[in-house]
Amino acid sequence: HHLQNRWVLWFFKNDRGRAWRDNLQQITKFDTVEDFWALYSHIKLASKLSAGCDYALFKDGIEPTWEDARNKRGGRWLISLAKERRHIDLDRLWLETLLCLIGESFEEFGQEVCGAVVNIRSKKDKISVWTQEAENQKAVLHIGRVYKERLGLSTKTIIGYQTHADTATKSNTVAKSK
């Protein structure tokens, strides 16, 4: 069963001795449902990764970096998870995110989606969906609404969208949400 897009799974392991970009590795590419499950069943669950590691799933041709041509004007819908939720919700929410991407759940705004990242950190884990144009409000809001619903988040849960530019230059710990 072919997917609309070919996707690349990336892995990031924080090794302070090396340049940031060298810690980011392409694992493999896939463009069928069957290959997705073969990969997913083969790798460690996100909740089992050590602190400082990330998984990223991005469309082939887009790197999971702010600098990539298709990311630099974009931003991300950000889900922050308190530490105790790692072993309860993290894997379920990350898998649902992956299914939204490969299943093209954002309809006509799917082409605005670049990819998704899960950051495993000692304080707070984060899951985010990266979109290409932060100023494309219609697309950003549609993607956010569908995503929040798919994750089954309660209506009172607030999720924020941050431009990568803000995230990259944030002085305090929390970049402002648009």
């Binding site: 069963h1 449902v33 499950w37 649902e96 299914l99 939204c100 299943g103 759940s105 799917g110």
Partner: peptide, 18 residues
Amino acid sequence: GTRIIYERKFLLECKNSP
């Protein structure tokens, strides 16, 4: 053009089929 969309239910069923 056409868009290839997979519902989550279908994707999860594919996971369990041999």
